[in-house]
Amino acid sequence: MYQEERMQLILDHLQTKKRISIEEICSLFDVSRDTARRDLVKLDEQGAIIRTRGGALLPNPLQDKIGNYKERLMKVSEEKKSIGRVAAHYIRDGEHVILDSSTTVHACAEFIDQQSCFIITNSINQADVLSDKKGVSIHLLGGQLEKEHRYVYGSTVISTLSNYFVDKAFIGVGGISASGFTSVHDEEGMLKHQMMKQARQVFVLADHSKFGKDCPFRFAALSEVDFIVTDRLPEPDMLEMLQRQGIEILIPDFKDEEELEEV
């Protein structure tokens, strides 16, 4: 087998298994450890993998591949809208709630129809959507504006948040894995974590593509979340791990989105 063929098969393996060891390469392709290392060195030089001690994994998604907020809003799927509808169902009249700046949480904001509730957010877009809802009182946090992604952040925001105690926080994430909950931007991740700390119940809103994915910044442990609202159950191993942490998985019933299926 030519090196180029073997390298492509290594990448195919990584797409499904997420990581590979030198021992696995030797076993799969009947090559020596030196040959396996040369394959990984070449793939690393091409930017296709990240070499680790004894193997390799796929690189994290690059920040520059993430579109700005308006672009991401245009691509909000029906699955994310269903997630947002389910999440909004859990907001009760009179509650104090934190909404972060993610597009999936934006979908939640669109479905809020409570007679009265108090919403705290760092998102310009969330505040704009909620401004048309008569029963909603809005507190837009002040801080440094991230223009491209339409949210405010910084030490001032975190300090202000620490004075609030709310019933629920609704948080979007970049990835969910055994490592915990991750995001691409560290500033945003620190802000999400502070939001979680101020809430009695924490809801993570994430479509199925976020399971088994790690982004560069880990901002919270699995044990810090009460519910994950998603469109599809994760793989059995992931589901078992989440349930061991006491997390409830909430998914829409696409036949009737007013009915909730709890696992």
Rank of each mutant, 00 (worst) to 15 (best):
S155V: 08
K197E: 13
F227W: 09
V152A: 07
V41L: 14
E45Y: 03
S82G: 09
G246I: 05
Q46W: 05
K70F: 08
L14W: 07
E146A: 10
V136N: 01
I249D: 08
H106W: 15
F211Y: 15
Y153L: 10
F170D: 05
A36V: 01
V184Q: 13
D214V: 12
P59F: 04
E45I: 00
S21Q: 08
H96G: 04
K81L: 10
E5S: 08
T16F: 11
L40N: 03
C108T: 13
M74S: 12
K255I: 03
S179N: 13
L260V: 15
L242F: 05
A48D: 14
Q15P: 00
E79L: 02
F211I: 11
Q8W: 06
H139T: 11
F254R: 12
T156N: 11
D167A: 10
Q63Y: 11
I49W: 06
C117K: 03
P216Y: 03
I66A: 04
D231G: 02
S77A: 00
Q144C: 03
I98Y: 13
I91R: 10
K147V: 10
T160N: 12
S183L: 07
F254S: 07
L43F: 05
K168L: 02
K133A: 01
Y69R: 11
Q144E: 15
N122E: 03
G84I: 05
A48R: 14
I158N: 10
F203H: 13
H139S: 03
V204Q: 13
G180M: 06
I158E: 13
Q201M: 12
L40A: 02
Q8K: 15
E5M: 09
I20P: 01
F203A: 09
A199P: 08
I247M: 06
L57C: 14
V97C: 12
K80C: 02
K75M: 11
S183P: 00
F203V: 06
D128T: 08
K134N: 05
R92L: 11
H96N: 12
S179W: 08
I91Y: 05
E110W: 01
V229E: 11
F118G: 00
K134Y: 02
S155M: 09
V173E: 07
I176A: 05
F211C: 09
A56Q: 07
V204G: 10
D237H: 12
V86K: 14
G212S: 10
Q114Y: 00
R232S: 11
E78W: 08
K197L: 14
A107R: 09
D113K: 13
G212N: 12
L130G: 02
H139Y: 13
Q245T: 07
F181C: 04
S32C: 05
N60Q: 12
T230I: 04
V76S: 01
Q46Y: 03
D253C: 11
S32N: 09
G67R: 11
R53C: 02
V229S: 06
Y164H: 10
I20D: 05
I124C: 00
I112N: 01
T160D: 14
E24T: 13
A127I: 00
